[in-house]
Design a protein around this nucleic acid. Structure first.
Lengths: 187, 187
DNA sequence: ATAAAAACAGAACACAGTGTTCTGTATCAA
DNA sequence: TTGATACAGAACACTGTGTTCTGTTTTTAT
């Protein structure tokens, strides 16, 4: 890929991220992004069809990375310890989040958090399917599997959102413990 | 209140609801609402400052009613049976929802469901606080109360969303049982 | 090194949607 | 009946969008 393209794309992402941590998505104009990124109008539209597509691409880059590394994690084959404090995929995710790569925490705790939490949840579902369902770890007699997947994903995302909205004072280990406390009975 | 005002307000709500069940919120223009409601442009802006305020008022009317009736419910003072199938506030909510008053189910399962589910969750939190926290029913040694409130609210809203997205084939009783299964350990 | 190709800047444009202001009409409540 | 008020409809300025144009700079390939 052309260096110029990469440079411009990065500048747009950076500018967009900066704006998103300050203003509501719907009150950010393309002109705002252009000014912040210091590029031409034509250039923006050469890279992204609309502002919505920019958001989509940003989300895919953010969560594709985070979930991707978790996907590659070794599966835990010991059912008795899978909910322990140290080997959970969820703890891995929380630690990864704490690193705040690409300022993802600012986005997840901004006024626009719902935008990103939705993407987060969608990707999380895929992760849970690959790490739990396909390993046969999510057998439940009375509850539908997709109901469980949805519940677990939602609960984790809500946990992260709660953590961020309260100033993330707790450690990833503590937060993971909170999450496992409320979710362990079904996991 | 003037009969004309009430008539117009209802027409706007009805038109808006109809449009919301077909199109995305952000691609509904004020002109669309005006045409659907068959009113003048001035009239719309005499009733609602912007489209956002219309949405807000609609939500308040929808959820204020549902949550309001549940607020008035008698408190359950028997801790041993509070999670039983028949006396839960949650079952009451599900039964009320099933009546589909003001087409609320269409809104909650439309493309715009996230808009309404957020309002739903916010109001649910207040309900849980008044029905559980203030009755001292939500004591937990290791978990923060606001974390629990958030978890329970989110879980219920997700349960309703799942129910609707799957064609609401289950009865309120079954759905309530699903919910209580995943939430009972912390309730 | 040089020429073709591609990415860029910036201005101008048509278009759609917003919220306001105006004039005049129809409906209400007293 | 009368004064007040809700209404319809047109016109308006304004903001933001996405495109098209011209010309410049940078990259890549020969």
């Amino acid at each position: 890929m052309d260096r110029r393209q990469k440079k411009t794309r990065d500048a747009i992402f950076t500018a967009f991220t900066a704006l998103l941590s300050k203003k509501q998505y719907h009150q950010i104009s393309v002109q705002d992004i252009i000014d912040e990124a210091n590029i031409g109008r034509t250039t923006f539209y050469a890279h992204f069809e609309t502002k919505d597509f920019l958001l989509k691409d940003l989300c895919e880059e953010l969560f594709g990375h985070i979930i991707g590394t978790a996907m590659g994690l070794p599966h835990d084959h010991d059912h008795c310890t899978r909910a322990s404090k140290t080997d959970s995929v969820f703890l891995h995710l929380l630690r990864h989040l704490k690193e705040n790569d690409r300022n993802i925490l600012e986005l997840l705790s901004s006024q626009n958090n719902e935008l990103f939490l939705r993407y987060f949840k969608d990707n999380l579902k895929k992760l849970i399917i690959s790490q739990y369902v396909e390993q046969g770890k999510l057998q439940n007699k009375s509850l539908p599997t997709d109901y469980l997947i949805n519940h677990i994903s939602a609960a984790f995302v809500e946990t992260v959102a709660w953590w961020l909205s309260h100033g993330r004072n707790e450690s990833p280990e503590e937060i993971c413990q909170y999450f496992l406390s409320v979710i362990e009975p079904v996991l």
